[in-house]
Amino acid sequence: CAFTHRPCSHPRLEGQEFCIKHILEDKNAPFKQCSYISTKNGKRCPNAAPKPEKKDGVSFCAEH
């Protein structure tokens, strides 16, 4: 993984420079932040999710 703030030993995603944990660092990657919002604390999930086809579409990470 090419994350520069600290060493990361996670494997890169195929065709990308970053792992799934750090892929949002790459603005050109086909990922965006997960659209899930917790009902308990109102916070948005920080994980990466595939970018949807539509610009305003929602997309969820593997956990959600």
Rank of each mutant, 00 (worst) to 15 (best):
R6I: 14
G42W: 04
E25T: 09
K27H: 11
T4W: 02
P52L: 10
A2P: 02
P7F: 09
A2W: 01
F31G: 10
C19R: 00
H5L: 12
K21V: 09
T39M: 07
N28S: 15
K43L: 10
T39D: 10
H22F: 00
L24I: 05
T4A: 02
L24S: 09
P30N: 06
P11Y: 02
C8I: 00
K32E: 14
K27A: 14
S35R: 10
I20R: 09
S38M: 07
E17Q: 11
L13E: 03
A48E: 04
T39P: 05
A2K: 07
N28C: 08
Y36S: 13
A48L: 07
I37C: 14
A62E: 10
I37L: 13
H5R: 15
I23L: 08
A48V: 06
S59L: 14
T39A: 09
R12A: 13
G57A: 01
C8S: 00
V58Y: 13
A48F: 05
P30V: 04
T39F: 10
K21H: 15
S9W: 07
G15F: 02
K43N: 15
D56P: 11
T4E: 03
K32L: 14
P30G: 12
K27Q: 07
K32W: 04
P52T: 09
R12N: 04
E63R: 14
R44P: 12
K27N: 13
E14H: 04
N47W: 11
V58A: 14
C19Q: 00
C34A: 02
L24W: 06
Q16C: 05
C45S: 03
S59P: 08
C34W: 01
K21N: 09
P52G: 12
S38L: 12
K43E: 13
E63N: 12
D26I: 12
A2L: 07
P7Q: 12
G42C: 10
F31L: 06
H22R: 00
C19V: 00
R12S: 10
C61L: 02
C1S: 03
R12W: 00
E25D: 06
E14L: 09
I20Y: 07
C45W: 00
D56G: 12
G42D: 11
S38Y: 12
R6W: 09
R44F: 08
T4D: 07
A48G: 09
E14T: 09
E63W: 11
V58H: 15
L24F: 06
C8F: 00
C19M: 00
P11G: 08
K51L: 10
G42M: 08
Q16D: 02
P50A: 05
H5E: 15
G15S: 04
R44V: 14
K21P: 00
L13D: 02
N41L: 11
E17K: 07
N47K: 12
K32H: 06
K43H: 12
K43S: 14
A2T: 10
G42K: 15
V58T: 10
L13F: 03
L13C: 03
D26M: 06
H64T: 03
I37A: 06
S38H: 10
I23E: 03
H64V: 01
K27P: 11
P7I: 10
R12L: 04
